[in-house]
Structures are given as C-alpha cells and as structure tokens.
C-alpha cells in the first residue's frame, strides 16, 4: 500500500516536471537589446533615448533581459554594450537591478563621445548574439538611430542577418538634411532595412512618435 502511494506520488511529480516549461524558452520572458546611435549629431537625441530606457525598465518583469549598446564605428563588439542586466527572479532584487541600470545609463549619457561612423549591421549582429545567448520567449531589438549606415573603409557588413522571431523596432528615425531635399531617400532607407529584416526572418516596425511608447514592446 505504502509502495503504491509512493509510486503514484512519483508519477505525479514526473507529470508536473514534464509539464514545467524550464526546458525551452519561457514565452513570457522577454529579451530587449537597444542600440543607441552615437554618431555625428545624433548624440543630441540621446535624452529621448534615456526616456525610452526608463520606460522600458518600468515595463520589464523579473526574468527579463535587457541590454543597451552604442552604435559607433565598429559595433560588433561586446565592448560597445553600455549596460546589461538579466533581471532576477525576485521582484525586489529586480527593482534594485533596474535602479543600478538606470544609474549606469545616466553615467554613460554624461560622458558620451560622438562616433565618426555608424555600424548598424554590426550592432544588430551583436544584438542577435546576445538575445540568442539568453534565449527569451520574445526577442526585441530597438534601434535608436536615423538608420543611415556609414561604415569605415575596409569593414565588411554585407552578410546575411539571422533574425528568426526577432522584432526589430526602429525608434526615432530622424530625417537627415538630404532627406528633406529628397524624401525618397528616407523612404528608400527604411524600405531597404525592412527588406533586410524581413529576409532575415524578423519583423520590422517603425515607432517615431515617442508619445506612444506602449507600442515598443509586444504584449
């Protein structure tokens, strides 16, 4: 009788463990990688970036991962990551981590240097690597940039991206002076990025209105 009860208990535990979602990515877990363009005059827009980061921090839950990296001359490097955090399971610790993260971003913003070139593709490769490493249920790359890539001589970025299941959101895509002369350039630029992201298996969105930050992350 005792053995029978133990067997039933073990079977029930087995079923429970089998039902647990620890093996694959947790669908409720989110991974967000934000790229900040620090090239040229775009550094003047970084106050808005800080606003977006603060908003994102309020939206993230325990277990989510968040990283902010800058886009500069060569962005395919872990050194370009300004701050990263994998929020703890415990809500109180997660809150503490959020506060530290915010402070790191503030410190960076205070001493940011303008970069001569813009390597968006490198940044996205780095972002993909980071997100794949964490393997969250929802992957989002936010690109805070004018989306005008300007690579230094000798850099090869003509490589296919792999963005399966990744949501790529271009935020605050400002119009350049040349765009004002020929708006088609702006439209072509966005169109080209959309095609690249779509070909890589990702979803492309543009959010320029910062009053509607709720659209940044998928619910």
């Amino acid at each position: 009788m005792m053995m029978r009860s133990i067997t039933i208990l073990v079977l029930m535990l087995g079923v429970l463990v089998g039902c647990s979602d620890n093996q694959g990515p947790n669908p409720n877990q989110r991974g967000v990688y934000m790229l900040l363009d620090t090239s040229g005059t775009y550094t003047e827009e970084l106050d808005k970036a800080q606003q977006i980061i603060s908003y994102l921090l309020t939206q993230l839950n325990p277990g989510d991962a968040f990283a902010v990296a800058r886009i500069d001359t060569g962005s395919f490097s872990g050194e370009d990551i300004i701050a990263k955090v994998a929020l703890d399971d415990q809500p109180s610790r997660a809150n503490s981590q959020k506060r530290s993260f915010q402070q790191e971003i503030k410190d960076f913003m205070a001493n940011v240097q303008s970069a001569p070139h813009t390597d968006i593709t490198g940044g996205m490769l780095q972002a993909t690597e980071y997100l794949n490493e964490h393997n969250p249920g929802q992957k989002t790359i936010l690109v805070f940039s004018d989306m005008k890539e300007d690579l230094p001589e000798g850099y090869n970025r003509d490589i296919p991206l792999t963005l399966d299941g990744v949501e790529v959101v271009a935020v605050n895509v400002t119009k350049l002076r040349s765009d004002n002369v020929n708006p088609q350039e702006y439209l072509d630029r966005l169109d080209e990025w959309q095609k690249r992201v779509a070909n890589a298996g990702g979803n492309w969105r543009v959010v320029n209105d910062l009053e509607r930050l709720g659209q940044l992350l998928k619910e």
Partner: peptide
C-alpha cells in the same frame, strides 16, 4: 501571490 514570487521566484511556470 505577489509576495510568494519573492520566495519561489517570479518567472518559473508549471503547465503555463
């Protein structure tokens, strides 16, 4: 339920 997340973690799920 909310403070329980402090004890057992707020991310793990069983059967959704």
């Amino acid at each position: 339920a909310r403070p329980m997340a402090e004890m057992v973690g707020g991310t793990d799920t069983i059967a959704g």
